[in-house]
């Protein structure tokens, strides 16, 4: 009786987790690369959300008199179109900002659908074990060994291109990773003493899950999520480039590269700029994720 009381109230706990967050933040801010990466990523996200306020032009508006205008630092460029215009005279900067809305929006949507579904399945499999676990893992092994690109392209070709379909296909490709990861963490946590202790002390399963398990799962999952987000942004760009994703005239980075592909030699900025936007996005996410792994893994501390 006495024990279960101490276990379910655990007075020290909130203070400790606040301390943990503070230490994480201070570790993190000391790392200037990670800080810069995070700031860049936040700016990208914000400019996507507020694209209509930030973008200097309407991304769809044609300016046929200024087709293929070079960027401002090239001879013949003007401040009106900082990064130049494309074949139809549309402002590349504005299209890139709106393109972020598509690319990051699709990325987050896939993470939300695939990540939530996958994590739930994985946690459940790890917690329940038994037949559910066995069947799920067998299926995931199977799906992961299917050449994903082939599957994605076939499904897209069959159900037709478009943003919604792309999100579905990318989510199908994404959830097994989350499931596997969440399951492995769940399995290792189940072995750990403090959960055993909470169980012995008579804690309810749901309380055990939310109070003890979740906080420990969070940081590895954030790392996985970041890496997945970067991968999804790249895949989305590739699919759109191949005409299997976002459809014209909607601005999306991969699509912009594809549209400008043919006149690469006379207007390379139309390819370069959206490419650089993709690259900045994936770089900032990957740098952030790499450093995150270091600052949340106590064993890695001090090695850097």
């Amino acid at each position: 009786m006495n024990m279960s009381k101490t276990a379910s109230t655990t007075p020290g706990r909130p203070i400790r987790s606040v301390g943990r967050i503070l230490r994480f933040l201070s570790d993190f801010s000391r790392d200037k690369y990670a800080t810069v990466a995070l700031v860049v990523f936040v700016v990208l996200v914000l400019s996507s959300i507020f694209a209509n306020l930030v973008a200097p032009h309407d991304p769809l508006k044609l300016d046929l008199l200024n087709r293929l205008a070079p960027p401002v630092w090239v001879e013949g460029g003007s401040w009106k179109y900082i990064f130049g215009t494309d074949l139809l005279g549309r402002d590349i900067l504005s299209r890139c900002i709106y393109g972020g809305r598509m690319s990051l929006g699709i990325g987050f949507a896939v993470i939300l659908i695939g990540g939530t579904f996958g994590s739930l399945m994985g946690l459940l499999a790890g917690y329940l074990g038994g037949r559910f676990d066995a069947v799920l893992m067998r299926y995931i092994d199977f799906q992961i060994s299917i050449p994903y690109f082939l599957l994605a392209l076939t499904i897209m070709a069959a159900i037709g291109p478009g943003t919604k379909n792309l999100i579905i296909v990318l989510s199908i490709g994404s959830w097994p990773l989350f499931a596997r990861y969440a399951r492995s963490i769940m399995m290792s946590l189940r072995q750990q003493v403090f959960i055993e202790a909470a169980r012995v002390a008579g804690g309810k399963e749901i309380v055990i899950m939310t109070r003890h398990v979740l906080p420990n799962i969070l940081s590895p999952l954030v790392t996985l999520t970041s890496l997945e987000l970067s991968r999804i942004v790249l895949t989305e760009a590739t699919m759109s480039y191949l005409g299997m994703g976002v459809r014209a005239p909607t601005p999306a980075w991969g699509l912009m590269v594809q549209e400008a592909h043919d006149y690469l030699m006379i207007a390379n900025w139309a390819v370069t700029t959206p490419g650089v936007f993709i690259m900045i996005t994936t770089l900032s996410i990957n740098i952030f994720a790499t450093r995150l792994r270091i600052s949340t893994d106590p064993l890695q501390r001090g090695k850097h």
Binding site: L234, V271, G275, V276, T282, I285
Partner: peptide, 8 residues
């Protein structure tokens, strides 16, 4: 790992 292949 960050390089977008289509652009690269």
């Amino acid at each position: 790992v960050s390089l977008p292949l289509i652009w690269f």
